[in-house]
Structure formats: structure tokens, C-alpha cells
Design a protein around this nucleic acid. Structure first.
Lengths: 152, 152
DNA sequence: GAAGATTAAATCGTGTACGATGCAAATATA
DNA sequence: TATATTTGCATCGTACACGATTTAATCTTC
């Protein structure tokens, strides 16, 4: 990349902008599906983690999603208000808050089952081949790992 | 992709999550550089647009960044408070608000010149080849175009 | 086993995002 | 040309993100 400094400052030549915009627009693609479940996109991500691992501390969820308690605590309180989860202090370590799914939280998983396929379809219909999509996702994960390493 | 429905609900198998997380972590990579300029990441994106096009309406900026006035108006007011831009109503069309750079807004560009290269370096040092990075970016832009088409 | 360091959540303040709505200016149409 | 529609921006309410700080519990170290 031997672009001039001026060229580099252009929006389309940066990695950051398409990443930022694609992330936001993707969230919007989920919106109509998630509206039916009455949850937001970040709340959906938390539910994905809980469906997979069942019981987790706030810290654990944060490690999965790269989020801290300052974001998670209010979000989890909203999920609790929706009766999807239960927040309780660990007996072993009073500092730790344990998140458990309620029955309706657990039941919501079946309603969410169809979402990933529908989203994937909306990407593949015009544009991406499925194989291409996999390579792309692997690249994203690779970037994510690099970014995560830098953090430390 | 013949993953079971259950598998598809796992975090690492979705496209959306690495996109969301990578976008957020990338923003954090920018933070120390932007702190020196005393602007946030979305403010930086607006400045990129203005450095490239000089004079733009709120609508124009929104078209470039996929943002609406409900996000841009308060953000632009903050940039105005920092004396980086001037907001004024168009004479031709009183509905339109024209954004112009101030002298210090224009001057800030030279301070931002080094940022893209530094960011690119932090991606390439361990992990990504430059060519790989270009393919990846092109994929992101492709996704962005698909997403943008779906919106309409 | 008390003092100090570390850790897990929570709280606070600021700044996005975004759906929904309001409002005034401009445009289209009867 | 009066009226309806559209357009560009602003406002409002809700929900993230996140740096910085606080609080309480646990762990270290002597």
C-alpha cells in the first residue's frame, strides 16, 4: 500500500469505517427478528452466551463478549426485568454475581433458532457465496484476536 | 454450511458477533491517538468526510457515514463547541444546514495524517499481511453494500 | 491475623445509535 | 394558487459503550 498520506485519510481506504458501518447495519438487519423476541441486539448476544453455557458470572459473560460490568450490569438488570434471567450473588464468593436463565429465558431459545439461518440467507441471496462468507468470518475472528491481544 | 440449528446459535459460528466485537475493539485502538486530537471516533469519521469534501450538508455527511440527523445533530453541535466546524443554514434552502471547517478544524488534518499508518501497522505487526488486509477490507465493503441495499 | 493489594460489580458522566415524532421549508399536484 | 406531500433537521426517549471511580469481598504477605 503506497498510498499518499492524503489518500489514506479518505474514508473508503480505511479499514475502520466499513467495519464500523457494517457492524451497525448488521445490527439493524437483526432488529425485526429481535423485536419479535422483545430484546435488543446486545441482549441477544448475552442470551446466546447463556443458552450455550447456562450459568455464568457477569465476568464470564464479559469475557465472551468483550464487555465490562459498566455495560453489562444495566443490560442484565433489563433482562431481569423482562423475566428472562435471574441475578444472584455467589455463595462461594460474594463479589460474584451469577446469571441464570429463567424458564421463559430458556424457552426463548427455540424462538431464536431460525434467526441465524435467516440472517445468513439475507447475506447470501445477492452477493456472498457461503464459502466466501466463511473465509470472511475467519478473517474477522483473526482480526478480533489481534485486537484482543493488543489490548493487553 | 450444514451446521445444526443448535450449533448455529453458538457465538463463534455467527458472523454478527465478531463484526460487532471487532468494530468496538478497533474503536478502542484509535482512542489514544484521537485523545490527542480531543475528538471521539465518530467525530473523527465526520472530520474525515469534511477534510475530503470541505463543505457538506448534514444530509451529505449522513449519506457518507450511514447516519441520520438524530445522531449527527448533537455530534455536530459538539464539534461546533470545540470550534472545529461552523453550522449555518443554507440560503438556497432554509431546511439545509451546511457544515464548514474552521481554521482549527482544517489544521487538525495535519495532526491526523499519521494515524492511518499507525493503525495499519498495529494490524500488520502480528497477523495480517498487507495484501490480506486489502482483501479483507474489500470484503467488508462488499458486505456493507449488500447491507445498504437491504435497507431500501 | 491485620494491613495492603487485588478483584468483581456497581455507579457516574459523557457520547453515541436509533426509532418515533415534530416542525418548518420546499415541492408536487389537484 | 391553495393544499397535500415530501424533505431536512431537530427533539425525545431508550439503550448501549466506556473511562473513571467506588465499594465490598477476597487474597497476599508478612
Amino acid at each position: 500500500m503506497s498510498k499518499s498520506v492524503c489518500e489514506q485519510l479518505k474514508l473508503e481506504n480505511q479499514l475502520c469505517f466499513p467495519l464500523y458501518a457494517a457492524s451497525r447495519l448488521t445490527t439493524k438487519i437483526y432488529a425485526p427478528y429481535l423485536k419479535k423476541l422483545d430484546i435488543t441486539y446486545p441482549q441477544y448476544l448475552v442470551m446466546l452466551v447463556l443458552w450455550q453455557y447456562n450459568e455464568m458470572s457477569v465476568k464470564d459473560i464479559g469475557n465472551q463478549l468483550f464487555l465490562e460490568s459498566n455495560t453489562l450490569t444495566p443490560l442484565l438488570k433489563r433482562l431481569e426485568r423482562k423475566k428472562l434471567i435471574i441475578r444472584s450473588r455467589s455463595i462461594d464468593d460474594e463479589r460474584t454475581v451469577i446469571i441464570n436463565l429463567t424458564k421463559s429465558g430458556l424457552k426463548l431459545e427455540s424462538q431464536a433458532q431460525t434467526i441465524p439461518q435467516q440472517i445468513e440467507n439475507s447475506f447470501t441471496v445477492d452477493g456472498f457465496e457461503k464459502e466466501e462468507l466463511i473465509v470472511f468470518r475467519d478473517n474477522l475472528v483473526k482480526l478480533l484476536n489481534i485486537l484482543n491481544k493488543q489490548k493487553k
